[in-house]
Write a protein that binds this DNA or RNA. Structure first.
Lengths: 337, 337
DNA sequence: GAAGCTTCTGGAAACGTTTTCAGAAAATAC
DNA sequence: GTATTTTCTGAAAACGTTTCCAGAAGCTTC
């Protein structure tokens, strides 16, 4: 173990084994070394308690073996799950992950992108804000980028996203089939995700001859709660809400509670992200489940493929969501208006 | 920008500015440089699009500016919140964070501790399993460690933890005051946290002349659900459950639903971690709120203090929890047994 | 105006690895 | 038994920084 004060280096190991540092290095990287020397070196490694210095290794070999992951907020359960999947895949491939939270703030994104450059990461998995998405092409980063959750309009980058329009349409379909007609929508105003879901919602509504009614909010539960309370005080009260993320889902539930509206009879609701608690709230909340595990893994897979074939045209992987039907969208009871 | 193929190094900057690399380095680290040269260098940095290579910097300066964070699972909302706080504090101090998920698996912990050594981290924030906690003293890591959530029995390490016994006692107190008597406990079997909470529970129960009845489970919602269902089929049915984490809380709620037991009249429940959804489930769940933000920040603060004064005796920071009373522990109605 | 301080600057030596290169020894081919 | 290949090994040159050291100015101070 670390008998001497300083940490043992490859030199010390070489000395202890009576070989050159080159040989030690080769043993460590399974290079061509005779069995006899290999044994001696391995013993010496154990004896000295040697641990390679990754900074030195990275500097010399010019491989950082590091991938960057920039999300808006790790506390968003969607990103929590995705990042866990990414990290598992990365560590399995012998790489490390650097995680950064942008808080949907383009300046922080820029800061972190710079950091990623300085770390010489091998690749980036990124859920950018709209602002950064627009500038992304002009940024000439020297590593490949795989977008998650957010979609590049230009399609110049690899990406793995949910089929957002389709998912939103599924919710409209479902609510419509259950007898709801005045279906309002609440969408996030910072990401492309909200836009896409809105688009799907709008199309599905008009396709059924229903009037879309959408509002765009900052991604906070409170914003959604206030919006719902205000909206329900207006002349045309929605019968149901489709909301574009789990924060809004909380907001709607809170608003319903505040207004003493039972779910779903007073107000139906459906949203995104099948978090464990959605099953437990009220009669259960109908949601679109995103394949979070798959998203993380696929993002890593896409990244690795890109690293192997840098010039291949970009690919977008569009994953389908699953509609988990629960009590919050039970069939509408006939009601006098 | 990156006009030439390769990324610009400090040499290129020096060349472009007509100065030595030493001067460039000094400019970058705010060393003593005349204004004229400083300007020239800054222009050259901009012109070349220079980004320092952190690996090289770390190697030479022998400062990794990196702190390690090993938790059991980032998807546990407690750790999500703590890690976010840790990361914010770290980035604010110009340091990076390496996050690892041990999954309560001592072998993975060992693996990651080794990784931390290889990264030459400046310090570690660590929520270890009991097994690793026991071996921690003999491990002679060459960086300081601050424990979070889990407590070292020996007290040899810095730590910041909740006052677990007190918190559990608060729940007993509260339930007792609300008229509950047969109060059962469900505790995690992998961490010291479960033990401590059990201890507080046991003491508070006996102090009130009540019979403690605790069971220890693997940290999964399913385990808790099954345990509750089984327990409620026994002769001595508990009136209330105290559970030691939010997964168990879900399990209890699911079990109550499955058994058609209304909360709290059929079964009262109180637990730990004030997650947003606990307010929304049933009549709201009574929980102990942990100061997650504070825990993360304090852990970083303790780490920095330790780095400045390596020989100071160890410190344990014990933070109090807040009891958030909700409907799941409403006053017990008189009931025939 | 010489001697002593400051203040700035550049050359070169680190930091701990990997990798290139060439040489030595062993194995194979004639 | 010599010529050729193959296999292994070590010396030394990178990788991109920071930092030590010494020298060159520019100031004081007498």
């Amino acid at each position: 173990m670390s008998v001497s004060g300083k940490t043992a280096g490859i030199k010390d190991v070489a000395l202890a084994a009576g070989v050159s540092v080159a040989t030690v290095s080769r043993v460590l990287s399974n290079g061509p070394v005779s069995d006899a020397l290999r044994r001696r070196v391995e013993d010496a490694v154990r004896a000295t308690g040697y641990r390679p210095n990754l900074s030195a290794r990275r500097l010399r070999s010019q491989h950082s073996q590091t991938i960057g992951l920039v999300v808006s907020d790790i506390r968003n359960p969607f990103f929590t799950a995705v990042s866990r999947a990414v990290e598992d895949a990365a560590y399995r491939a012998g790489m490390r992950v650097i995680l950064c939270n942008s808080d949907e703030n383009p300046e922080r994104e820029e800061l972190y992108l710079r950091l990623m450059q300085e770390e010489r990461i091998t690749g980036l998995i990124f859920a950018p804000t709209r602002a950064t998405l627009d500038r992304l092409d002009g940024l000439d980063l020297d590593f490949p980028v795989v977008l998650i959750d957010r979609n590049a309009p230009t399609g110049r980058h690899d990406a793995v996203v949910l089929d957002n329009p389709r998912a939103a349409a599924m919710l409209v379909e479902h609510l419509h089939a259950q007898g709801y007609r005045r279906i309002a929508g609440l969408f996030g105003n910072t990401s492309t995700t909200g836009q896409e879901r809105h688009e799907g919602y709008r199309a599905a509504m008009t396709a059924r001859g229903l009037a879309p009614a959408a509002r765009f909010l900052a991604p906070h539960a409170d914003a959604a709660e206030e919006a719902v309370v205000a909206w329900m005080a207006e002349r045309e009260r929605p019968e149901a809400f489709i909301v574009s993320n789990s924060l809004f889902l909380m907001g709607v539930v809170k608003a319903a509670r505040r207004l003493h509206l039972p779910i779903p009879d007073g107000l139906a609701v459906a949203g995104f992200d099948n978090e464990p608690w959605t099953e437990l709230v009220g009669p259960g909340l109908t949601v679109i489940e995103q394949p979070v595990q798959d998203i993380g893994q696929s993002a890593m897979a896409l990244l690795f493929e890109r690293l192997e074939a840098p010039d291949r045209p970009s690919r977008r992987l569009i994953l389908g969501g699953t509609c988990i039907v629960r009590g919050s969208t039970a069939a509408r009871m006939a009601a006098a208006d």
